[in-house]
Amino acid sequence: MTDAVAVFVPAPDLTMTIENVDGSPDIHLHAGGQGVWQARMASALGADVVLAATFGGETGHVVRTLIEPALTVRELAVAARNGAYVHDRREGEREQLVRMNAEPLTRHELDDLYELALIEGMKAGVAILSGPQDDGVLPDSLYRRLTADLTGNGCLVVVDLSGSRLAEAHSGGPTVIKVSDEEIDGDPLSAGRDLASTGARIVVISRGADPSLVFHGDEVLTIEVPSLEPVDTSGGGDSITAALAYGLAADLPIPEILRLAGAAGALNVTRHGLGTGDGAAVRHLSERVRVRPLAEEP
């Protein structure tokens, strides 16, 4: 297996963040959104990353030019404009000043996007299915069909979704499910067992500062990471997802994949950039990550 990962990125965002540098505003423009952040971290770890993404309108044109050259883009030009937001981080915390939603894709655009994502996922052998930030861009049922078609043709599918998108993808039979405990109802242990009961090889439930829960076969594990001072907790979960996908693509042992995932998430929250980090630094930190059975005392 090669270290190739395809990332399904419907409607990536144009992001504008205002920072404070020596008392003056400093404005940063980036391509963003869940799939872009996941792609960045997977690439940093060494994966050959391909994005299957849509671009439309003025925002889409700018987003396309901002995507890093290290990421290969299979782009689909659409009429629907990409979304955008402005965040103010001059006081330390992110404050959203304005959000412009992405527009819905047409039926023909959806057909073309599905075809693009299917072929790129099959070619790579490992695919991450991410979601657009906005509702209504594409039907949730697309995730069930795409998951089923990819796994049915030998692709390992990693999903990082919530709500009805997760439910649809889950019914398609993904290989790995990553979800935040903030995005599930009820007890994380019960939810994790339910998600794993239909055949997912690995289910990871991130829990903020608490150890992530992992459901693998009959085992329930925890990922314990070193204590680090957070700068921005946004993007930590996406870094976990990226490392899970990279580990599958690199055919690493499950314990090593989980340690790498924990390290990627922990290191990302010490940085201002989302989905960023040095691959060598992640690997070094992973040596300090502990994967233990849930009942085992540290």
Rank of each mutant, 00 (worst) to 15 (best):
A127F: 01
L156A: 07
V5G: 01
D48E: 15
P69K: 04
M122Q: 14
S239D: 02
V204E: 02
E75T: 06
G217Q: 11
L146I: 05
G199I: 01
A11H: 07
L166S: 10
M100R: 07
F8K: 02
E287L: 00
A124D: 07
S206Q: 06
Q38H: 08
R145L: 11
G275A: 05
A280T: 13
D3H: 12
G56V: 00
F8S: 10
I67M: 06
P293L: 06
L51K: 09
D181H: 12
A209W: 06
T17C: 05
Y143H: 09
I119G: 00
H87A: 13
V7L: 10
V9T: 13
D134V: 04
V269P: 04
G279R: 11
S212H: 07
Q133N: 13
E95G: 05
A263W: 06
P211I: 04
A44F: 05
G46P: 12
A281H: 06
C155M: 01
I27G: 05
D134A: 03
E224I: 11
V291M: 08
P293V: 02
E115L: 09
E297M: 00
M100V: 15
V98A: 14
R99Y: 07
G262R: 03
A209M: 11
A148F: 02
G33R: 03
W37D: 11
E68D: 15
L14A: 01
D88E: 08
E287C: 00
H216N: 12
P132W: 03
H170N: 06
L294A: 10
R292C: 01
L71G: 09
A44S: 15
V291G: 08
H170P: 01
V36I: 15
L146P: 00
E93H: 11
L97M: 14
S43N: 14
R40I: 05
A281D: 15
A200V: 09
G186W: 10
L138R: 06
S141T: 14
L97Y: 06
A200D: 03
L252V: 09
D278G: 11
L221K: 11
L29C: 03
L189T: 11
V225N: 01
S227V: 15
Q96F: 08
L285H: 02
I184G: 10
V225T: 15
S234C: 14
R107K: 02
S197F: 13
V289W: 03
Q34N: 14
Y85L: 14
E287T: 13
V157N: 05
V137Y: 13
H170E: 04
S130M: 10
R144F: 08
A169C: 10
P255D: 04
T54L: 09
L195D: 05
A77P: 00
V291F: 03
V9P: 04
S141L: 08
D232W: 09
V50G: 11
R40M: 13
S24Y: 13
N20H: 02
V73I: 08
L76T: 10
Y85I: 09
G247P: 14
L166A: 08
A79C: 00
L29V: 01
I257N: 08
T65I: 00
S171T: 10
V98L: 15
E219H: 12
P226E: 07
A167D: 11
G154V: 02
G92F: 07
A42G: 08
I67E: 00
G172L: 02
S286C: 10
A31K: 05
G236I: 12
S164P: 05
T233Q: 08
G275I: 07
V269L: 15
T65K: 13
